[in-house]
Design a protein around this nucleic acid. Structure first.
Lengths: 346, 346
DNA sequence: TTGTACGCGTTATCAT
DNA sequence: ATGATAACGCGTACAA
């Protein structure tokens, strides 16, 4: 009775190194070396092994290899939600670039994973069990304790689009301060008099820096912020907040929105209320969502280059992994004013 | 000289079962059992072990566990691109539901991975090395040979939103035929006389079924399809194709578009050409992209329930994994006509 | 209930 | 260049 028959058709034993070795009449080390890129194997042995492997349908077991080499070639990516089109875009780029270097992506969505830091920490501990070689934290806060832990065990962490009070992790952000200034300049040049800011989440460094830059530049022009509301990085929340803001007697004539995702909601709300954008109200967004997500919106936005940010992230990760160097790096990518082509000038 | 000093701060040896056992003064199996949900451990031993584990900061190694149990608790998800908002939505749901059951997501983006079947096959072989317990194939074709292979080694595969000429895999789709019919009925009721169809990729079963349903219902009304173009599931391609279609002398007065992503592009193109939608041209889309992606578009669409589809996918996967039953299941979820609230009736 | 010993599939070390 | 053998960290019969 063969093994496959004994265990039924669903539980066939995996073809192993040893099986190939047996068929090829060589040692298992020879087989291993054949499948290890830079190893010294006799040309003839190699051929025999390859032949045997093919007839047996052998596929190396990455898990076993991980146990032995202590390198999983998996990168954990943590993201809190995918509604904001910016993140799918980033994930796609990261995934492609990593795959090019032989890495794979373990994805974690942390949406409702409990209460803030605790939730994300629990998630991180979960992910650590899988022996990932590196971690990309996009759009989440991480307790400094955990960051320190990762650093201690030598797992490089990249904080993506997020700053944190930790020195142990690398960071990749865009120039949010300059972006804020740019937004201010743009709106002022267009004659805006009452500029309001739409925040994301209050404790997000991204929102904070963008607002800071905005205020800075306004101050330089002897102006003050008209007001601010909070959109919680959420479409519906931003929409509601906008409605509320415009139900007051004194309305702003320009809005700087912390990201494009909320900017769309803002425009939606304004339209519903009968305002014409950008004539009645000028809106400037931030981020970089693909054109296909811009919909019918006419939006002027501060673009952060997701391509550049992804490239920097991968580059940092690879450098840490290949050199074993653990010193954190901080990268700030440039931003740029973008107006959609079909938009009449703001 | 301690280990940590000897290897430098970056290469600390992982805390293992044995370390905990040593400190606790018990056998390693006792520790193992402590961390195995349904195992018999003495109450006292358990406490000691937990104590020791905590002081040592022990975390079980999922990779080693995988090697031993032959279950990785990882599900591979393959998707070809993330531009179409439908897929991020689905991935988010799948990920959440799987995480709830203790599974993790290994993500593969197959964008430019070579020429069709060969590319995806290579990718799949790659993913198989990681011993995933199951695979979700969204938006891609898979060679029947590979499907058979997965089936043979007992890895459940769910074809998501895709039909294929294989009996060995489960499938989850929406009722594309009925959706096509629904679109036809809707457009006819609104007085459309020249209805054209915008295809996705020619060999996609989704596109084919939606077109088939459309034609069926048109025939029931003694009508014929005015024509068709191909948008390749791509925003820009769909836009270009639409422009071309409307540059001809005889133009359609209604369009059924194979998915919402392309429908947005179509509307964009029509607007650029000075048409008013839906007055001049009536457009019906398909899929289920989140409201936040609808932008300023007014769109009537056939909604396939991504929540339902995700639930079915996870349910199939879990059933196969937990019962060991390998018989494929086919699920077809219902579709529904949706008009955006701010839209004036089509 | 607890401990011992072996297997999971691979790489690494050290001979030859 | 090749082969034997010992890790890698954990589950699990089996015996006690």
């Amino acid at each position: 009775m063969t093994d496959s028959a004994k265990f039924g058709s669903t539980a066939i034993r995996q073809v192993t190194l040893a099986d190939v070795a047996a068929l090829a009449g060589v040692s298992s080390s020879a087989v291993s070396r054949t499948f290890t890129p830079g190893a010294s194997v006799g040309k003839k042995t190699r051929a025999i092994v390859l032949e045997a492997a093919k007839t047996l349908g052998y596929r190396p077991n990455a898990i076993a290899r991980t146990l032995s080499t202590r390198k999983s070639r998996m990168i954990g990516i943590v993201v809190s939600y995918l509604h904001n089109q910016f993140y799918p875009t980033v994930i796609e780029r990261l995934s492609q670039m990593l795959q090019l270097h032989g890495y794979h992506v373990l994805l974690f969505i942390s949406s409702d994973t409990g209460t803030g830091e605790d939730g994300i920490d629990a998630l991180l501990l979960d992910i650590l069990q899988y022996q990932v070689d590196g971690i990309v934290l996009a759009s989440t806060t991480m307790s400094s304790q955990l960051a320190a832990h990762c650093h201690a065990v030598g797992i490089p962490v990249v904080l993506f689009n997020r700053l944190a009070p930790v020195e142990e992790a690398s960071t990749v952000t865009s120039d949010n301060l300059e972006g804020g200034r740019l937004a201010a300049r743009t709106l002022i040049e267009c004659g805006a008099r009452r500029i309001a800011f739409v925040r994301g989440l209050e404790d997000s460094s991204t929102t904070q820096d963008r607002e800071k830059g905005l205020k800075e530049e306004l101050a330089r022009h002897r102006k003050r912020l008209f007001g601010h509301i909070c959109g919680e990085y959420d479409f519906d929340a931003a929409k509601a907040a906008t409605r509320e803001l415009f139900s007051l007697a004194k309305k702003p004539d320009a809005l700087f929105v912390a990201n494009d995702h909320m900017a769309f909601a803002v425009i939606d709300a304004l339209r519903d209320m009968g305002h014409e954008v950008p004539r009645d109200v000028q809106v400037v967004g931030f981020d970089n969502v693909p054109q296909s997500a811009w919909g019918g919106y006419r939006l002027t936005t501060i673009e952060q280059n997701s391509e550049l940010m992804a490239r920097a992230t991968v580059s940092i990760l690879l450098e840490h992994l290949e050199t074993g160097d653990a010193t954190p790096r901080q990268v700030v990518t440039p931003v740029q004013l973008i107006r959609r082509s079909t938009t009449r000038p703001i």
